[in-house]
Nucleic acid binder design. Structure first.
Lengths: 180, 180
DNA sequence: GCGCACCTTTCGCGTAACGCTTAAAATGAA
DNA sequence: TTCATTTTAAGCGTTACGCGAAAGGTGCGC
């Protein structure tokens, strides 16, 4: 249940509504290592509240729907602390596109090239998104938290770049490959 | 339902039992892009049989339990062909360890270093497994199918190497980082 | 001779965690 | 006028998975 702890992590830095979490965090600053559905975020917030790890207060708005703003509790901080120190297993890694390539010998080169170019577009898009995530500046004395965040983003960007280079190589290999 | 098509892909190359699929394929040759649970493989084989995409025959063995050997059907080949040409979306990417690092500012450096070293061990282990997967030789005129398989493996190996280098950099950064 | 690992399939348990869609109600922008 | 935005809720489904144990025989290590 890592989403739960990702949310706890965000709420340990700032209070936020479900909407904030979705639009500011999961669609932006942590998108390079975790994505979450809107409905799932609200459901998880409920669970967190049940556990007493977060509290909410209703913020009345006149010109917008009211917001439920969540804040982490002491118990929540303790739980986050506990989870943060648990060694994590490797995530499972499943790539449909690699299945296609691996078993793609029966397809014409042209089809494989098109599929690869499609993936290339998607990854270039993702890289562009990652590069828009604001990086903490390195010129001043860097804050410890910002250094850690920067490191995770650097991995995301480097991974996308590697994938893109690999895809380009796949495409050029396919272009020079005699059919069957 | 990509597992289904991964199995179809394997059976398009050779017939196999559920046990074969687990031990030869999913624990070995395709492990770098797809992992599957044993029970899940058997369940998926049933589903494939229901669809008429594979057939099985019982192979009687005297010294071992009998094996059910599956073979792909013509309908199965058609389905595989169809699926192989569908553009795939990017897989979702979720990394618990990156959550820990991203929100790890409240942990002592030493804890973060230990967590990172744990990940490093796991990734080195995975890399070692990948490097044991037999690569088709490049010296002779390479077969088209083997070229494609080799490409997927090269991505897996390169990704692991990148991750390992990044982890080493994380560790050295942490070692030189003043505590909060 | 004992225990253990291997071989192969089947079944039963659980279930977390997710994705999609629709609804609501008010505002402000095009 | 129409559309997008803001914010939460709830209902639908459900897949795909993970874990564990059973069965029975063989053959290896010590």
């Amino acid at each position: 249940m890592s989403l739960l702890h990702a949310i706890l992590g965000i709420l340990s830095l700032t209070e936020a509504s479900g909407y904030d979490l979705k639009t500011q965090a999961f669609d932006r600053s942590v998108a390079h290592f975790w994505q979450a559905d809107q409905a799932q975020i609200y459901r998880t917030l409920e669970k967190l509240a049940e556990q007493g790890w977060v509290e909410s207060r209703l913020e009345i708005q006149t010109e917008r729907p009211n917001r439920k703003v969540y804040r982490i509790t002491e118990a929540g901080r303790a739980e986050l602390q506990r989870w943060l120190t648990q060694p994590q297993a490797l995530p499972i890694h499943r790539e449909p596109f690699l299945i296609q390539l691996f078993f793609g010998a029966q397809l014409p080169n042209q089809t494989l090239i098109e599929l690869s170019k499609h993936q290339l577009r998607l990854h270039e898009q993702k890289l562009a998104e990652f590069e828009q995530i604001p990086l903490p500046k390195l010129d001043t004395q860097p804050d410890r938290a910002q250094t850690l965040m920067r490191l995770t983003l650097e991995l995301g960007i480097a991974s996308e770049k590697l994938y893109i280079e690999w895809l380009k190589q796949v495409i050029s290999t396919l272009e020079n490959l005699p059919e069957s």
